[in-house]
Write a protein that binds this DNA or RNA. Structure first.
Lengths: 222, 222, 222, 222
DNA sequence: CAATAATCGAGACGGTACGTCACGTCTTCTT
DNA sequence: AAGAAGACGTGACGTACCGTCTCGATTATTG
């Protein structure tokens, strides 16, 4: 988003503007330098300085400012570029395993150095709305789209009720992960992910079974 | 406990240290100034400057530094002092309403100006472990203790299975709230809280009922 | 020479260093601001703050610190730049008038606002060796060189003995001026200067006459 | 002077004020601490802090402020109390030796650690008139009084002309010493003192001889 | 092939807040 | 009352980055 239009990378017409073209090498060095900084455990969004990014990239400060209007835009770009990592939703035939496998991947990322970048963005986003918006738009939304598809598969399989509120369900699944990630009051393990899936999806699934049963019971009595 | 021991307010011996005693008025003014700053919507933890806190409190900068080693310690103290607010768990006889009523109170606080302080602490805590620890110790833990009691009431009433993992259950309940609060991808309404309680607790409750049923079914036919 | 080499004004090579060149305007504003401050009667070296110099020059504090490592170096530079003023030794044909005329000029300067700068340097120099060294090198030595020439003219004219210790003679002439200037126990007037010249140079001159006389007497009559 | 009247040491009436009497021990400790600080080569008047004086004396800051209104008053008192040292004018029968012997003593003091206190006072005095006044009144004047007597002895002995301006003569003798002491452009040795005395007093003495000679010549031959 | 134009690095610029230090005043308990 | 201890509001210290600017050098397209 930020810096995108200005960057001119969408300018896929055949006309190039005059003058020296933007240095792709500098751009990459800047984003790498930003990520490298944020991935260090002792650093947060607030500690990141444009000065150090520029120096770390071997680049003039003005080159950073020329392409990214704010620190948030820079960090958002750097983060977005780093999420090439697949957070895939498999199709195992069971909604609980579909979800838990993807959630395990997320947890793995959050616990890696890359997780530091996420916490930096979420932290910085608390005082910079554009940053949290970037996280939502570039990271959360694309994955939610996939998640919806996965859940709908579950519905069509009859594992979930058709009227299930999917947003609520997804928040019930991912909210605890982000909470433990940010507040660190308890361990963020694969085991936790599985138990969480069982609890939340189990609830929904069983509700379905109960409903079936209720419908069945409506005929003869018990 | 940042600032706590140094503050000497635990010094419950009968001997006062020599020298001019600490100004209780200055202390209060500083904490108030800090809260007042953080409660403004446009401000976050990163925007808070000791300089402005001191000026807002009509106090010298050195007086702030004398008692709080870091900005984080100051904010943690200010926050802790502000949570005299009741976040009560009622005893309505039904676990779902007990929980949802308290969660609605939490949501109300998060959506108030006080919520800004919470987000500032959670944000600041991402790069300052003492700050997030302060949040856990002074806010989260005391409330969790109450929540355990409430949930155990539910177990003794037979609403929840005795082997239910309470930490998991609480994270499933509160995680989604914190997630929506911090990422703001969806609305944080009382209705959301109720639906969330139904989903999560309903899951646990129904599992219980199912188990009963299964036990019952074990005897005659199906 | 404090600040000189770093200033890069001696860089008479043809290559300019990279980056934005130093602002000549800022440099001048800073030195002027410094002089203006010190020339006020109520101010001394100890009262001079970098903060006020910067503000008075309409310049950031960092710009001052970038080029002058200490307050002393700044004051020394400011003073050196201000001594374009002529302190000329005339050639009147008589050593006493040559010296007294220049000394009267010095006294005039010391009694002017510029004198405050001198006292500030001499005062500051008591705890900062580089400052007193700057005064010696940039002010005292150049003038002493001229004074030597003037005195040697007197020797060649036969007004002074050839073996006269010139350093001693100059201290005997200027020491009392600086003493009255700094201790202010007595008035620093042109009349004082003349009487001083008569006393000190008269002593040397008369010694010469006496010696001549003695030599003459060695023959017979007068 | 400063602090004297307030000190109440002149209060030789028989009535003592009620309450705890002033601690003589504290007073001495404060003055010693002050001198000890100023005698260190790296310290000047500007570096002296009341805080360090108090701490060095094992005394509360308020005790210093209670008795000395300014840093200058404190330093002046400390210095005055330290000049118990004899700077005696001997009576050797010859004006030149009388003076040079005392001047050698002065030079010795200036070159000792005590000299640092003198330079601190003269430096501080450049921006604090009360400090330089204290130096004049408590140190310079008493010694000048003795010097006048010594010089008048010389006049009565016929070594100096009766109309000699004594203030001028004394400044011609001491000015060069203070100049070399403060500007440090040349060595401050006993040899320098002797040569200086010869030059200045010799001038006066020879002028006297010449005058005699002229008077004699007024009759006939030689 | 020169002229033009936008980029690059470097780094100085006027600012603002940092965290420290000493100021001179005050408030407490002890002597 | 004077003492020590030490907290108080104040203000300058020297440092670090901010975001902007001005350089010479570089690298493209255009005339």
């Amino acid at each position: 988003m930020a810096g995108r239009v200005k960057n001119g990378y969408d300018n896929n017409g055949d006309k190039r503007p005059p003058g020296r073209p933007r240095s792709e090498q500098a751009r990459r060095a800047i984003l790498s330098s930003t990520l490298a900084f944020l991935e260090k455990k002792e650093h947060g969004f607030g500690d990141l300085t444009i000065e150090s990014v520029a120096q770390g990239a071997g680049v003039g400060k003005a080159t950073v400012y020329r392409w990214w209007p704010t620190k948030a835009a820079l960090v958002a770009d750097a983060f977005a570029g780093s999420v090439t990592q697949k957070l895939h939703f498999p199709d195992t035939g069971a909604i609980t395993t579909d979800m838990s496998q993807q959630m395990r991947q997320l947890v793995k990322i959050l616990r890696s150095r890359r997780g530091n970048v996420v916490s930096a963005i979420l932290a910085g986003g608390q005082s910079d709305p554009t940053l949290i918006a970037a996280f939502r738009d570039r990271f959360l939304k694309p994955r939610r789209a996939e998640a919806y598809a996965t859940l709908r598969r579950g519905i069509s399989r009859g594992e979930l009720p058709a009227d299930q509120n999917l947003d609520l369900l997804l928040d019930a699944l991912y909210g605890p992960i982000y909470m433990r990630f940010l507040i660190q009051h308890d361990s963020l393990t694969p085991g936790f992910v599985d138990a969480l899936c069982d609890l939340v999806l189990g609830g929904a699934v069983q509700r379905e079974l109960l409903a079936d049963r209720k419908a069945a019971r409506a005929v003869p009595s018990e």
